[in-house]
Design a protein around this nucleic acid. Structure first.
Lengths: 187, 187
DNA sequence: CTGATTATTTATCATATGTTAAAGGAATAG
DNA sequence: CTATTCCTTTAACATATGATAAATAATCAG
C-alpha cells in the first residue's frame, strides 16, 4: 500500500487518519495476464491502481477490438465515462501482464469525500491530471499523422513495444495492425 | 447570474452563502465577435460561462489555425490543460458571435474551495462531466471517419452550420476545409 | 453600392491508410 | 517436442483525405 500513498503524495497531502480511512476500503489484488478485470456492460465501481504490470481499456467497434488506453506501473486505471456517470460501460479492463493492483471501492470512497474534504481534494487532483492527459491526447489524434503518433508513443513509453502486442498498439493509435507494421518497416 | 446558478443546480446544491461567495468573484462580460478573450501564451486563470453566443478554443500547428473545441450557450469555457497545470497555454479563446459571459476568477475560486467544500464539490463535478465528454471525443477521433464525425456533430449541434464558419468546423473534425466541402457535397 | 477581402466549392493529382489475403514467426498447450 | 493457434509482416489493390490552384460566393469596409 506504500506505493499507492507515495503516488498520492504527488498530488496533495493526507492526514494519517485519512490514510487509514482509505486503506480500509482498499484491497490488494493479484491478477493473471489476459484476465478481464472488469467486463463490458458493468458499471465501473472500482478505482484501480497498478503496482506492477500492464493493463488496457478496450471495447468493440463493429466487432473489432479497439484499445482505448494503456495503464502501467503507478497509473490509476478507471473507466471514467462510467464512474462519473453511473452508467454501464461499453469498455472492459484487461490485464496484459501478471499484475499486482490495489482496488479502491468507489462508493465507499465517495462516502469518505463527505467526511474528509482532503480525500475529495486528492481525487479531484488525480482526475484533473488524467483530464489534462486526455485533452493532450485529442491534439495528437486530431492533427498528427499515424507515424508521428507512433514515434511519440515510443518516446513516452519506450518499452511498450516489448511488453504489449502490436495489434493493441495499432488500435490505440487509431490505425490498423497492417498500417502499423508498414510504418515500423519504413527505415 | 441566474443562468449560471441554474447551470450549477444540475451538478450539486449550494447554500445561499456559497452562492454569494461565488457571485462575489464573478464578472459579467460583453464581448464582440472575433475578439480573442484570452491570447495564446497566457496562463488560464479564468473560468468562463457562456450566457449567450459562441466561442472556440484554437491554436496554431505549423502555422495553421486549428479549432480544438466550441462552446455554446450554457457551456463552461476553459483551457483545462493550463488551468490544471498552471502552465501557459498554447491555445487561445476566441468569441465567434457577440457574446455575454460570466468570468470566474480561478485563483479566488480555489481559495473558496478551502472555505466551502460544497463549492469544491460543485466544480469537481462540472469538470468530471467535461472529462467524460473529452473521453468520448477521443473515441470519435480514433475510430470514426470524417464523414461520420461530421454527421455526429450535425446531430449534436444542428445549427452550428449556420453559426460557425466551415473552416473552423473542418479543423475541429480533424480534416481540411477542402475535405469537409467534399463531404458536404456528396448527396 | 462598390470594390476588396474572406470563405467556400470544385478540380486535379499525390499520398497515407484501409482491406483482403497469404506467408512467415512466435507463443502456447498438450 | 510438436502441433496448433495466435501474432506480425508483406503484397496488391481500393479509397479517403491532403495539397495546390482556380473559380464562385459571401461578407465587410469605405
Amino acid at each position: 500500500m506504500q506505493q499507492l500513498f507515495q503516488y498520492f503524495k504527488q498530488f496533495s497531502p493526507l492526514t494519517a487518519e485519512a490514510m487509514d480511512a482509505i486503506a480500509d476500503i482498499c484491497k490488494l489484488l493479484h491478477v493473471a495476464k489476459h484476465t478481464d478485470l472488469q467486463p463490458i456492460g458493468h458499471t465501473c465501481k472500482t478505482i484501480y491502481f497498478l503496482n506492477k504490470g500492464i493493463a488496457r481499456i478496450y471495447y468493440y467497434k463493429d466487432g473489432i477490438d479497439i484499445t482505448e488506453s494503456f495503464a502501467f506501473e503507478n497509473d490509476i486505471l478507471v473507466r471514467v465515462e462510467s464512474l462519473f456517470t453511473g452508467r454501464p460501460s461499453r469498455k472492459a479492463i484487461q490485464v496484459l501482464e501478471d499484475a499486482e493492483l490495489v482496488a479502491i471501492d468507489a462508493n465507499q470512497l465517495f462516502q469518505l469525500y463527505d467526511r474528509y474534504p482532503e480525500i475529495e481534494r486528492l481525487f479531484r487532483k488525480i482526475f484533473e491530471a488524467a483530464h489534462v492527459e486526455t485533452v493532450n491526447r485529442i491534439e495528437a489524434l486530431q492533427f498528427h499523422t499515424a507515424e508521428e503518433r507512433y514515434k511519440a508513443l515510443l518516446n513516452e513509453e519506450p518499452n511498450i513495444i516489448q511488453r504489449v502486442p502490436l495489434k493493441y498498439i495499432a488500435s490505440y493509435l487509431g490505425i490498423t495492425q497492417v498500417s502499423l507494421s508498414r510504418i515500423r518497416s519504413q527505415r
